[in-house]
Structure formats: C-alpha cells, structure tokens
Computed example of a mutant assay.
Amino acid sequence: MSSLSTVVEVTGGERLDYVHEDTHKCLDVYKPYAGVVKTSGAEQRPRNAEGTRNAILAVARGLFARHGYRPTTVKAVADAAGVSPNLVTRYFGGKDGLFLAASQVDINEDDVYAGELSGFGRRLARSVVGRWTSQAGEDPLLVLHRASGELPEAAEGLARFLDEHSTGPVERYLRSCGLSPLAARHRAEAVDALVLGLSTRRRVLRSDVGDGKDIEIWLAESLQRIVSG
C-alpha cells in the first residue's frame, strides 16, 4: 500500500482517501470536481474560476440556443464543458441561474442611429446580419428567442429586449427625423416584426433564406421602405 499513501482532498467535490503517489495523474482525473486541490506535502493549485465560468457559459449558450430550455440539462452542459454538474450548480445556483447568465444580451447599435434616414435600412441590416454571423450559435439573443416559446421568463426577457433595444430606439430615431409620434411608433413596430420574423425563420426554424450577403441586401431594401413610408 506504500504507493497509495498520499491523501488528496478535493474541495467542493469528493474526498479521495487513497491515491497514487503520482498526484499529477490524479489531478488530471479529478480536476473537473476541484476548486482547490490540496495534497500532503504539495502546493495548493487554484482553479482559474473566471475562465472555467466563462467556458461553462459558452457551452450553455450553444446548447440553450440549439435545443431550447427544457431539453438542456445541467448534466448536459457539464458533460460538454468537461466539468461536474456540482461545479455548474456551485457557479450558477442551478439551471435557472445558468439560463439567466447565458441569456444576458450585450448590444451596442449606436452606429445604426448615427446617420441620415436614407441609409437607415442599410445600417440596421448590416448590424442584424453581422450579429447572426459573428456570434452564430452562442448568441444570448438566440438563447432568449428559442426559449421564449417554452419559458415565460424568456418570453418576457425577449419582449423587454425588443422594447429597450429595438422598438424604442427605432421610434426615437424616426421621431428625430421628423416623423409624428404615431407614425414613428407604427414603423418601429413594423421593423421589429420584419427582423424578428426573419430571425425566427433563419435561426430558430433553420429555413434556407439565402446566404448572409443576399439577406443583408434585401433586408436593407425592405427596412428602408418601411421607415421611409
């Protein structure tokens, strides 16, 4: 038993009473379960908590966006991220907390509203299609979109996002361009309907609606017709 004499304690996971003297091998096996691994006579090895958390979030966004809320489990996220379900729960408090973190949308569209009305459709289309292609399956907005049909909180989050980052800003921009409040509101809602409908067809239903460049061209033309009246 001399070769199994080293005691390793894995915090936040499980305790291994006997492991091989070559603790590096054991660390590789049990690393997903460890916050800090303590070995007798060895230095503590801290986990890169922020990096691990971000890696879990990236995996969760992809799974939530691809499969929706209900089919995506904490275990599925943990397995795909190479960690234990307990670690996911420790970071996020469970599935609801994980979903909330994965669906936080960060967006900056100041450039869309900086310019003449005659170029608005082109600027917005470039922003929309650019987001689809740059973030692909890990877009938090797609996470909200796909889950909105099965989770009331996701539907509320998507509606809130549209009010704060789409309908509201478009309406204010159109009013600044001289449209009446009523006309600005109606055209902003029409812009929302077009973009959300196209997003649903392409990203949720995965319909073939053309490649990115073709979509950007005809979307720009359609948006411009809406806002110009």
Rank of each mutant, 00 (worst) to 15 (best):
V170T: 12
R146V: 12
H20L: 14
L174M: 06
S134H: 09
A184W: 01
I107R: 15
E150L: 07
K75A: 15
S2W: 10
L4D: 11
A190G: 02
Q224N: 11
L4Q: 14
D139I: 09
R202Y: 10
F120P: 01
T72I: 05
S3L: 15
Y91L: 11
T167S: 14
H165R: 14
I226G: 01
Q224S: 07
G229P: 04
R90Q: 12
L174T: 05
F64H: 00
A193V: 07
G82N: 02
S118L: 10
V170H: 00
H145I: 02
D110P: 10
A81M: 01
A154F: 03
C26I: 15
V74Y: 00
N48T: 05
S5V: 09
R53S: 03
L174A: 06
E43L: 05
D106C: 08
A78L: 01
D211N: 14
A102T: 07
L151W: 05
F92R: 02
A184C: 08
A155S: 11
A193S: 13
R225W: 08
Y69N: 03
G149N: 10
D192Q: 14
P71Y: 00
I107T: 15
K31F: 08
G212D: 12
S84G: 08
D96M: 10
A188M: 07
V128L: 11
D110C: 07
N86V: 10
G149Q: 12
R201Y: 12
L4W: 15
Q135V: 10
R66K: 11
L141S: 03
R225L: 14
K75S: 14
D110Y: 09
G12K: 02
A220E: 01
N48R: 12
L179R: 01
T6I: 13
V129Q: 04
H165A: 12
G212M: 10
G212N: 11
A193T: 10
S3W: 13
V170N: 02
L158Y: 09
I107V: 15
L194M: 08
C177M: 14
Q135K: 13
G41S: 08
A183E: 15
R53M: 07
Y113I: 08
L198Q: 01
A184I: 05
L223W: 04
A188T: 08
L57P: 03
T73K: 01
D96W: 05
E14P: 04
L141G: 02
R146G: 03
G13P: 00
L182M: 13
K31R: 09
K25L: 15
I217F: 11
L205S: 11
N54C: 08
S176R: 13
L162G: 09
G119V: 02
R175D: 02
V112E: 01
R123H: 03
T52M: 12
A184G: 06
P152C: 04
T23F: 12
A34K: 00
S228L: 11
K31E: 15
V8G: 00
A102F: 07
S222Q: 13
